[in-house]
Design a protein around this nucleic acid. Structure first.
Lengths: 194, 194, 194, 194
DNA sequence: TATGAATGAGTCTTCATTCAT
DNA sequence: AATGAATGAAGACTCATTCAT
């Protein structure tokens, strides 16, 4: 679809120049389209921003769904979640950059919808830690705080993890999972990590 | 100093509304100053942004210096670095928010200087991991990648760690250090954690 | 005819929102037609405006013709003219509103044609007063000025005289004629006012 | 005041070209001011329109106040009201044109305030007719309807009564008052008119 | 008849900054 | 140390209209 192409181009420009710093004219040039034609497709600049956010959240949620379907121990779930998340960041570096930098520019209903989806994902991660603590696989720790730590560690890769780079998503996901799972493991787990 | 007060006020407004979305006029209102007077103090809007960045980097670097002076094992260094870093985020939530969101708005020399200091800090963290690996206290892992993981985990707290909140910097730093140090610990370390 | 329906719909929208403030898109929605199809019928936005003006002038002129054919004294002519005019305003409140508000938006030839017809009608009203003065039925007064007074009194009803309201055209025309005919009556007319 | 000059210039341009058809750029040229400077004074285009309306209503209300203070019979009041009203139209032909043509462009609070003041004036006129009917000086007629007739007759002069023209306000007000007062006079008044 | 993508000049408004006072 | 008028480029967005289909 033409609109999808515009959204992707915009993500690239927003990531490079910033949402507010990017003028509609720049988007027109980047898409080789007149102002009227551009607006014919996008509705508004903020709608474009929302579409970029949705693109990211859709992919992230799909990944979380796949993980839930796959089942396994909390440790295995965590490893898979990390790999899925870094895969999205790796495949959509521009969209994710915009997602993590420009979300405060969303207003009204769009802001609420976005926050809702973001929290929904956070809750899923938190649930994995809660499960691990309940089964004794993880130490007794605050699931919320630990989920935030895990999220920060993974999300922050948006600053340096790019599709064109030397590192694949898995190259990063594996050592990250190693660190985190060892870090939260219960006392009885002196064996078979990794 | 009057200028310092203006910088702090600006950090608050930028954090709430965004750098580009904030007009000079808003800053004038927030400081109860006319345009001419404001410019007398700040020079330019971007200089204001740079001052906010400097405020953060100054504090972060001071903390890193204190840690280096204190000495200790890599694990101890890491724990102290985390506590210092979260302390800055906790005490300057607005400045840090701006720092982490708006750094792409810095241009030219200011951008370079900022990137330099940021990398300098990253190198210090990386050095701790390298030392830990060298002494065998930590597993054999990629120091750069591990430093980025550690930075992400700590920096990302800017989204929810506030001075007014229920959690202190130490409340967060302690469990974070627990997770991370266990996560990177060498095989011989089945003892004295905590 | 489809075009006539479009003109009438447009009159309603223009009356409510204003000619310049109404976009082509709104007219498309109001007529449930695409842009291309709408233009197929109307030619241009200004042609639409001209059609609305013509609709009003056609009706007004037809009324004036009926009055002329009916004959009678100047007083009778005046009463009939008023009733015909208010009848048009009452039946076409939207068209008349547009007519009286948006005529400056007509340009070039269309503006000239419209002004010509409007003046033609004014001259007819003026002629009745001139006749009344000549026959002595009316006092000696300036026919042009008096015609303008009469026109203002009647035209201005477009602000409050609506088809759906409680007042009929005749409810208003009768007292208006009473006032005006008494107001211009010659000294010898102490009898048979109706 | 500079702002007042801008308001007056704008009234002239709006009267000639129409409010919606006039761009901010034209106002800048007409005032020999840049866009920023213009906005420094006016706030918004609609605020400018409101200022023009206020200018008219202020003058009209002042006139009505003078009439009320002067006292006299309803007929005398009516004659004075007409002269005051036509005087405003004569002195501010552009402002009045805008007032009578573009009031639908006012929105929200400004629209309400304007309607309130306009109705307040209409009520004053209506009150004079009510008083005349009560004292028997006027025939038994509908005060509201008669007031609207009177207002239409006078307001409509905005189309042709200009300060530069050959007619003065009094030239028009006198014959208008003659017509209207004779038109509404009670049966016993077969004497000393005009 | 009808569609809807495309145009590009136009809309009102805000921007960071300067400068005479 | 401070005011606030002025600048003029840029902001997001809408306009009436055309044209290939």
């Amino acid at each position: 679809m033409r609109r999808q192409a515009i959204v992707d181009t915009a993500a690239s420009v927003f990531a490079r120049r910033g949402y507010h710093a990017t003028g509609i004219t720049e988007l027109c040039v980047a898409n080789d389209l007149g102002k009227g034609a551009l607006y014919h497709y996008i509705g508004s600049k903020e709608a474009l921003l929302a579409a970029i956010h949705d693109r990211v959240m859709d992919e992230v949620m799909l990944g979380a769904d796949r993980v839930a379907e796959a089942g396994g121990t909390p440790s295995q779930q965590l490893a898979m979640l990390g790999e899925e998340l870094l895969d999205v960041i790796h495949r959509y570096p521009d969209h994710v950059w915009v997602f993590l930098h420009e979300f405060p520019a969303l207003t009204g209903e769009r802001a609420e919808q976005f926050q809702g989806r973001r929290r929904e994902y956070e809750r899923r991660v938190e649930a994995v830690f809660r499960a691990g603590v309940d089964t004794g696989e993880f130490r007794a720790l605050d699931p919320r705080l630990t989920a935030l730590a895990w999220l920060g560690m993974h999300n922050y890769t948006y600053l340096w993890l790019k599709a064109g780079g030397t590192l694949s998503a898995r190259d990063v996901a594996k050592p990250f999972a190693d660190i985190f799972i060892r870090g939260v493991a219960g006392p009885a787990e002196g064996h078979d990590k990794g």
